[in-house]
Design a protein around this nucleic acid. Structure first.
Lengths: 242, 242
DNA sequence: ATATTCGTAATTGTTGACAGTGTGCGGTCC
DNA sequence: GGACCGCACACTGTCAACAATTACGAATAT
């Protein structure tokens, strides 16, 4: 009997082994994060069916934690669960993505208002530094450097709102948008225009002009929606033209 | 052994029995809705611990479905789950409620813009009818009649946006706000003012003035936030004065 | 040949038992 | 008397087996 216990200790490490170390996190939550990464990265494609038994075997855990992880993933909007049919990676069409852009714009507008009304000198300095860094990447047309800075800038803007619910909600929307397009829609040619908008936002925030900051941030996101629309029209035109 | 199987068949009906009839819905989802009702109605109070074993016994199901229902409830923001400690009905303080009001206002602003840009004559008629009905309840100062009409009016405004994500998101926020205050914050004396705002919104929507409709709907919610703030200040004043 | 039905396989839903974690109480040592 | 240690209890986390549902394909009838 004791030997059997040792067998358990020696069983293939994977997730079961990780749990021996830190019990503060549950296996289900670890798997949830793992699956989330696989979905965001595209390793599991849109519409794919998540087979509980297969995942259970892959992660070397029973189906219980898998099921709980899926329920959590449904919360993020990354999968949808149909009774007696299981979990499917959500398919995001253009229409849905445009809807999410509208919501994202409204939330960023709110973030802008809140941020401008309570921004600290430190935050202004950090935002300024990011805008300057981005300006450098614009000059060298280095979109791979621009992208993470852009994400950090936006994250900082939302965090600065100090509205915890907003800070939680925005990434949820963002993850869902990632389902539609892998990478951001910042095209090489649009980097300069984008950073000009950043400068305007920074100016309004620094001036503590809540209304202006909110309006600019909303427009900034809607500009992204516009670029998506343009791309879609372009693709459709190219498709029907061929 | 066979007898034991029969025992299972003959066990008290409850949820297990309901499932025999309609298998389209899972036990977990039924329990989730049941628990949601208990939380919203206040039968389970804020901060209360949801004991899995106790619930399992009460609903006469095993702990599996209970756990899944809880994971779903966490999604609605009605409970929070702490590893190795279980599920607790979320405690909503004033600060959090005010945060949610801001988000609700931003989302209603978006709803207003979208609604005004695509409203149909039928929708205008239905909204008008509601405003008129509410006017009647204002005259008789009948808040119990006013309340459901007010809810329906707001629901219709959001549905009219035709943004599915928005239509799903707003009730989630609303449920969380219910955790803070059982009933809406419409006070008897404020019914008339509230319906005046409804009239202005209706006018802007009818005129298909998106910007105006958005601004008015945002203000309408923020007015509710203002009333909450006033009440809180009042209570605090009364408390410190005593 | 096509549509329908039945049976089997695959998959999800549910269960009860077991393992691990956190808490509180009683005993012991200083 | 007070602080610390350990043990027992209650609870959540995980597992493997069983039940129910759905999907697929072959066989049959039209």
């Amino acid at each position: 009997m004791i030997e059997r216990k040792q067998e358990v200790r020696l069983r293939p490490v994977s997730f079961g082994g990780a749990m021996r170390i830190r019990r503060s996190e549950t296996i289900a939550s670890l798997i949830q994060r793992e699956l989330e990464g696989m979905i965001i990265s595209g390793e599991i494609g849109a519409g794919d069916h998540l087979n509980e038994a297969a995942l259970s075997e892959r992660f070397e855990v029973s189906r219980g934690p898998i099921r709980e992880a899926c329920r959590g993933l449904e919360r993020s909007g990354l999968i949808r669960i149909v009774a007696n049919h299981g979990a499917f990676v959500r398919e995001m069409n253009a229409e849905e993505a445009l809807e999410l852009y509208d919501i994202r714009a409204a939330l960023f507008g709110l973030a802008g208002k809140l941020l401008a009304s309570r921004v600290s000198p430190l935050e202004i300095r950090r935002l300024s530094a990011l805008v300057e860094e981005m300006e450098g990447t614009v000059d060298t047309d280095d979109i791979n450097a621009f992208y993470p800075l852009n994400v950090e800038f936006h994250t900082l803007l939302v965090k600065g709102s100090e509205n915890e619910h907003l800070i939680n909600l925005v990434p949820t929307i963002d993850k869902q948008l990632h389902l539609f397009r892998r990478r951001g829609l910042v095209q090489p040619g649009k980097m300069r225009a984008s950073n000009e908008e950043h400068k305007a936002i920074l100016a309004a925030v620094s001036a503590r002009d809540a209304a202006q900051a909110g309006a600019l941030m909303e427009q900034h996101i809607l500009a992204g929606k516009g670029r998506l629309l343009a791309r879609l029209a372009e693709q459709q035109g190219a498709a029907s033209g061929t």
